[in-house]
Design a binder for these strands. Structure first.
Length: 459
DNA sequence: GGAACTCGCCAC
DNA sequence: AAACGTGGCGAGTTCC
């Protein structure tokens, strides 16, 4: 993909220019890597992988597979696995790849209910950790530091990307993978890692474009919680408790709210939610199984609420979708206006002064300006923090950036001042500099122990 | 033996 | 009417 950087204002040009310089300084600083740990962990993972491979090769499933091939099956080959599952065993694929073959991704394999495949999924996960992350740290490190590149010229939406190694996709959600990888990344001796991220930045930027009144109310009211409200609706919970029902809030956020904002619709959302958070058998919830909530099992709760099947659930989600777009009418209208503007002029201009032109489909036209402008907020703040850091000669260093967050290697003695400056720049100075930001901005900070790795979050 | 492709999977 | 955005990267596969 050819990316054309197209700044239409001096401000936009300056943002790129200064951004590149600030990011280059972060690249130069680098992130400390515990190479010994990475090497040891690789050996440990290799032993574990070998054990799981032996175990897998000892199963009936594998022996059947082996029996049907001329040479030994390659455990890593999804091509061969698909040929066996869907060609030889004639199983019905639950999903298909873009080229039309039966899918062998995690979701698809889980649905087949073949216990032996769990080992294969575990092997996949461990290999990912070893071969994608730990290997890359060892390969890319120089004198115990990795220096990821942060690119501003490669992404269609005007976001950034990162490579060699990619600093923007280090495991976080899966605890085992997170710890295995992040234990390799350390602050400088006597320092502590600090991660500052904008909360709900994309939704706030979205509101700056659409000025949707419901969304503005949610953002301006500190007690309001859009995802919790939707979760309450989806799962029919009375007395919704943000802590007790955290899983359901996450499900609503990642399984409905964001997909809908990105252009998905109720059928996919319902299927996705049911697949990931429910236990289905023949289109009905399995009683007494699956995830637990304060009310008991989610499946039992939904059955009691009159939603025993996927079909009923899908209709329920359809109603919620209708209500959702009624409530966010301003956003729906903005989508239509924005799309019409693109069709008329052939381009769209971001709030930050950059232009997206060329052939785009509707979902691109809606998405790019939000992603791009949200990242530009982070970049503006990063540039300012970097500037103050230099003039005040901080020992604290910026070492990376992940779209809406900045990662620093902090001198503990400077921590409270650093936090104060960051808070001022991110939440007060930025909206002052860019008056189109008509919503409050907010940041969260994760602080890691002195000399502690990136796996040891404190608060 | 390398380029270009597919697939799966990590992040936001 | 149809239906989720942006990347990087490793392994396997196919093509030349």
């Amino acid at each position: 993909m050819i990316m054309t950087i197209n700044p239409k204002t001096q401000q936009a040009y300056d943002l790129m220019h200064r951004g590149i310089l600030a990011l280059a300084r972060a690249e130069q600083q680098g992130i400390r890597v515990d190479v010994d740990y990475a090497e040891r962990k690789k050996v440990h993972l290799t032993r574990k992988i070998e054990y799981l491979e032996r175990k897998f090769r000892d199963t009936k499933f594998y022996r059947h597979w082996e029996h049907t091939t001329k040479s030994k099956p390659n455990i890593n080959s999804n091509f061969q696995l698909a040929a066996f599952l869907y060609g030889v065993k004639k199983l019905e694929p639950i999903a298909f790849t873009t080229s039309g073959k039966g899918s062998t991704d995690e979701e698809a394999l889980n649905q087949l209910n073949i216990p032996e495949l769990n080992d294969l999924l575990e092997i996949r996960k461990l290999k990912k950790v070893r071969d994608t992350y730990l290997d890359a740290f060892i390969r890319e490190q120089v004198n115990g530091y990795v220096h990821p590149s942060f690119n501003l010229h490669l992404v269609r939406t005007y976001r950034s990307s990162s490579d060699r190694p990619n600093f923007q996709n280090i495991p976080k959600r899966d605890k085992e993978a997170m710890q295995a990888v992040r234990k390799a990344l350390y602050p400088r001796p006597g320092h502590q890692l600090l991660e500052v991220d904008y909360s709900g930045l994309e939704v706030r930027i979205l509101a700056c474009y659409s000025k949707d009144s419901t969304m503005m109310r949610y953002i301006n009211n500190a007690g309001a919680d859009m995802h919790a409200d939707i979760a309450e609706q989806i799962f029919l919970i009375e007395n919704f408790d943000k802590i007790g029902h955290e899983t359901l809030r996450d499900a609503a956020k990642n399984g409905f709210v964001f997909p809908e904002f990105y252009g998905d619709y109720y059928k996919n959302c319902a299927a996705g939610l049911a697949c990931k958070w429910g236990q289905l058998s023949q289109g009905k919830w399995k009683p007494g199984q699956g995830i637990k909530i304060p009310e008991g099992y989610l499946s039992d709760h939904l059955i009691a609420q009159g939603i025993p099947s996927l079909l009923k659930f899908t209709n329920h989600i359809k109603d919620i979708e209708e209500d959702f777009w009624n409530r966010f009418q301003g956003h729906a209208d903005w989508i239509d206006r924005w799309w019409e503007t693109y069709k008329k002029y052939g381009y769209i201009d971001l709030l930050t002064g950059f232009r997206c032109s060329g052939i785009m489909i509707r979902k691109h036209v809606i998405n790019y300006p939000i992603q791009g402008a949200a990242f530009h907020c982070l970049l503006w703040a990063l540039i300012e923090i970097d500037r103050i850091m230099q003039t005040e000669k901080w020992d604290t260093k910026i070492i990376g950036q992940i779209h809406d967050s900045i990662i620093l290697d902090t001198n503990p003695g400077e921590l409270s001042h650093v936090m104060k400056v960051i808070k001022q720049i991110t939440c007060i100075d930025l909206p002052k500099a860019w008056p189109w930001i008509i919503v409050p901005l907010d940041v969260d900070a994760d602080i890691y122990p002195v000399d502690g790795s990136w796996a040891e979050k404190e608060k």
